[in-house]
Design a protein around this nucleic acid. Structure first.
Length: 272
DNA sequence: ATCGGTACCTGCACGC
DNA sequence: TGCGTGCAGGTACCGA
């Protein structure tokens, strides 16, 4: 589900409802999503005031009056606000976190759902080390810095997925930006010509901005904190289009495996 | 230091 | 209809 545009959308829809609210109680029931002592985590959160919420890469950072709550949605995590915790449509065996908010106003709860349990919820005294080791934000990085960071032997697709290279790009937007820039996913990063690197960064930024404007891509079940789907999936030109004609040249989109991830590209427009 | 492969977990689509 | 297989927006960790 969630790459940079989806996480950004979730954060934007959470901000007006959660900023300034107090967490009365927190409950967790997955040993995967909340590794370590779940009860202690819940204890850390009880009574805390939410100062601000921001995205960094694919992470959601909730600044509290004491410490930081860091949430990663993994593949299938979702955060939803609801009036009460017994909203039957929003809770299931996959509801692994329930945050009860101060009863002064609605929404009364924040629910964390995650079928595959690849997501993570943690509390740290300050910025999480997992966030600290992220690379720059793709929407902020300068072309000069981007080019410097490309001086590596890795294949372009794998490098775009590397969160220490750039934070927030995932499988969809890696494929879409390489397609838009006409770069083969197996191209070696350090061998990219300067003008092609510029084209890639431009394409990546344009696509990420457009996707945020669309509320992200809803591939199967992604929704924002209000339950709204995104619609950028209708703009996908490579991802999920195996066998369908390239919108530019008509050649069937090909799917290969790169870094163990399904990788979609046009063999005509993206030559090695 | 970098890179690629594997593991983690559940649900679903597909082929037989 | 039922069952096995492979695949899915993610990251961490291991060994080369």
């Amino acid at each position: 589900m969630p790459e940079l545009p989806e996480v950004e959308t979730v954060v934007r829809t959470l901000v007006p409802h959660l900023t300034g609210r107090r967490i009365v109680e927190a409950r967790f029931d997955s040993r995967f999503v909340t590794p370590g002592n779940r009860k202690r985590l819940a204890g850390r959160l009880a009574g805390r005031r939410i100062e601000s919420i921001q995205r960094r890469g694919k992470f959601i950072q909730v600044a509290l009056d004491q410490g930081v709550l860091t949430i990663h949605l993994g593949m299938t995590g979702s955060l939803r606000v609801a009036a009460t915790a017994d909203a039957p449509a929003l809770t299931s065996s996959h509801t692994h976190g329930i945050f009860t908010l101060d009863p002064t106003r609605e929404p009364g709860v924040l629910l964390y759902n995650d079928p595959r349990q690849f997501g993570r919820i943690e509390w740290t005294p300050s910025v999480s080390p997992r966030v600290a080791r992220l690379g720059p934000e793709p929407l902020d990085i300068s072309l000069e810095d981007f080019r410097r960071r490309l001086k590596r032997r890795a294949r372009m697709k794998a490098l775009l997925l590397n969160q220490a290279f750039l934070a927030g790009v995932g499988n969809i937007y890696a494929d879409e930006s390489l397609y838009a820039a006409g770069i083969h996913p197996l191209a070696i990063a350090a061998r990219l010509k300067p003008e092609r690197a510029a084209r890639l960064l431009g394409a990546l930024q344009e696509i990420l901005r457009a996707a945020i404007a669309c509320g992200g891509s809803s591939i199967s079940d992604y929704v924002d904190a209000m339950g709204e789907k995104g619609w950028f999936q209708v703009e996908h030109r490579a991802y999920g289009r195996e066998g369908e004609p390239c919108k530019v040249c008509g050649t069937p989109i090909k799917k290969i495996l790169v870094a163990q991830r399904g990788t979609h590209f046009c063999p005509q427009c993206q030559r090695r």
